[in-house]
Amino acid sequence: MKDAKKTAFSRHVLKLKNIDEVIDNICTQLKEDVGKRFRRKGGVVGISGGIDSSVTLALAVKAFGADKVLGVLLPENDSSPDSKEFALKLAEKFGIRTVEENISGALDGFGCYRRRDEAVKRVVSEYDPAVDKMKIVIPEDIIKRNLPPVHYVTVVFQDGSEKTVRLPMNEYLQIVAASNFKQRSRMSMLYYHAEALHYCVIGTPNKHEVQQGFFVKYGDGAADVMPIGNLYKTQVYELAEYMGVPKEIIERTPTTDTYSAEQTQEEFFYQMPFGEMDLLWYGWENGYPPEEVATVMGLTEEDVMRIFKNFERKKQTTEYLRTPPVHGYYGV
């Protein structure tokens, strides 16, 4: 039964009521955790030119001061050139120091590109990584099938034509495992700078990434603090506007910046626009009845129930990612 004290579900239910207070609370907690609890002097943020890392950086600057924040740009062979341009614009706006670390050499050393491309070629033999691009997608209609998602690889050939093929298990796993070297290499480099400065690594995942498992374990999922880890994406945008994140960053479509072909987060993982997903997730997480959510969202009750089931499944199957090493096997 619905809790009588619960706010009625509406399209405005997630709008931040007192944004100054929200920011102050986050920054007070950040200072407490980094300075007092972890006894570190500042924060390192990996800046990609995306909305999440931009807001994280803005919060870190407000909490510690610009002179105690280092922005690290971590480009590699597949990065969009926009990422660097936007990240530098952000750094300029907030007056922080930056360092650029190209991790392509490290990734070559790990065999990241080679291992990934070998797997892609096994399913699309015409793929030539020197000139063609690739990305992983989930078809839009997959959520309607009431099954967990299966992934497809799309190769964008040099002439602009595309080929999309469903990935068998071994190839899918190899592509993901190889690509995850990127997030883990970035993490290693961030910790290098953090340790060299006696700073903390300030992580950038938002609530959806944390709760739905859209991060790499010990990659972008590894950090000392995650100031936006409990904020919905639309709330991250609210903070971005309020804190003066450059307009180009706010207007940019969120991408994974992981595969060589441009790939939105929606097509890779979420399968629905952020505004809708925020509200539906909030409705599910807070136990609103599907019929109440359906009315507000303009969906059928069956649609909402299917989406809720999908959320539940995602949360359950990604528990592994959120769980730290289990060690209590023997003794007291």
């Binding site: 967990p148 299966v150 990935l167 298990m169 796993l173 499944r313 359950q316 199957t317």
Partner: peptide, 17 residues
């Protein structure tokens, strides 16, 4: 098997194989 959480998307892929 999917609703009960016995299988997830990796399970589905392994089942197809």
């Amino acid at each position: 098997i999917f609703d009960e959480g016995i299988f997830d998307s990796m399970g589905l892929l392994s089942l197809i194989n």
